[in-house]
């Protein structure tokens, strides 16, 4: 039984990696790939249905090309994922290492702070942050980064505490290896698998939250192409122009699904290996 699951899992893994890779390429090369300028309005062509000449996925309420907007929207989504996960990872690493290495009151204080952040409903906290610092993608990325940093801090702290007890770390310490070297050679590489899994899952969450905030009008600002923003304006035309909601919805769904699946598969693979 086991090998068959592994094979199936491997196929799925390659599929998700292929999707994510393609998405990344599309995002990077958006200006080359997109058939039209995502911002240019063409009022006479508004609500053109998918397949109309020049509008493979239809045109929106201003006559803008939906396909081009989705392609440029991938940029916003991936950028938000990368930057906010980067911020969360950095903050989480620093706090987690500090808490795990120093222990005692520092540990208690830092973890209390992290638990406090975690105890708020994520989207609500993001809305609060964005309302205070202003609407826009940079604010959204910073907010998501801060909000998700406790997830990383917890993992890093727990791993640090465990690894610290490992004989090879203790002997390195006894031999007088500097702390910086212990962290970079012994601690970080050994906690990497768990961090990678957490990164992929958080990436998916970040994309969903960006889409939600943009849908609420707090994230990406018009006329910027963003999947969540596209859904926001599409909700007015659900009965008459369903494709306006369908394609950005599909893009969000597939992307989030892929990252979640990737996280799960990596988690399984790494656990099997242990």
């Amino acid at each position: 039984m086991k090998p068959r699951i592994a094979t199936a899992a491997r196929v799925v893994l390659w599929c998700t990696l292929l999707y994510i890779g393609t998405l990344a390429l599309v995002a990077i090369a958006a200006p080359l790939i997109a058939p039209a300028d995502p911002l240019v309005q063409n009022i006479p062509a508004r609500f053109s249905s998918p397949g109309t000449a020049g509008y493979p996925l239809g045109a929106d309420d201003f006559g803008r090309d939906v396909l081009s907007r989705i392609i440029f929207g991938a940029r916003a989504a991936l950028l938000v994922g990368l930057v906010s996960v980067g911020i969360a990872l950095l903050l989480g690493l620093v706090t987690g290492l500090a808490a795990g290495l120093l222990e005692g009151p520092v540990d208690s204080a830092l973890m209390l702070l992290m638990d406090a952040v975690l105890s708020f409903p994520t989207v609500l906290l993001a809305i609060t942050v964005v309302s205070v610092f202003g609407y826009g993608l940079p604010q959204v990325m910073a907010a998501i980064g801060v909000i998700f940093s406790p997830l990383f801090a917890r993992i890093v702290r727990a791993e640090t505490l465990t690894l610290k007890q490992e004989p090879y770390v203790m002997s390195a310490h006894a031999l007088g290896t500097p702390l910086r070297r212990i962290v970079s050679v012994h601690l970080l590489p050994n906690m990497l698998p768990k961090i990678v899994v957490q990164c992929t899952v958080t990436f998916a969450l970040a994309i969903v939250i960006e889409a939600s905030l943009s849908f609420l009008g707090l994230g990406a600002q018009p006329p910027q192409p963003s999947w969540g923003l596209m859904l926001r304006s599409a909700r007015n035309y659900l009965l008459d122009a369903p494709w306006l909601a369908f394609y950005p919805g599909l893009a969000i769904g597939l992307t989030v699904f892929s990252f979640n699946l990737l996280g799960d598969l990596l988690n399984e693979l790494l656990q099997i290996r242990r």
């Binding site: 911002l39 240019v40 309005q41 201003f62 609407y135 018009p222 006329p223 304006s233």
Partner: peptide
């Protein structure tokens, strides 16, 4: 004004 969608839509058109 963000809560008045028609004005926001008009704004996008003015911009262009």
């Amino acid at each position: 004004p963000q809560n008045y969608e028609p004005h926001v839509r008009a704004g996008e058109m003015y911009q262009q």
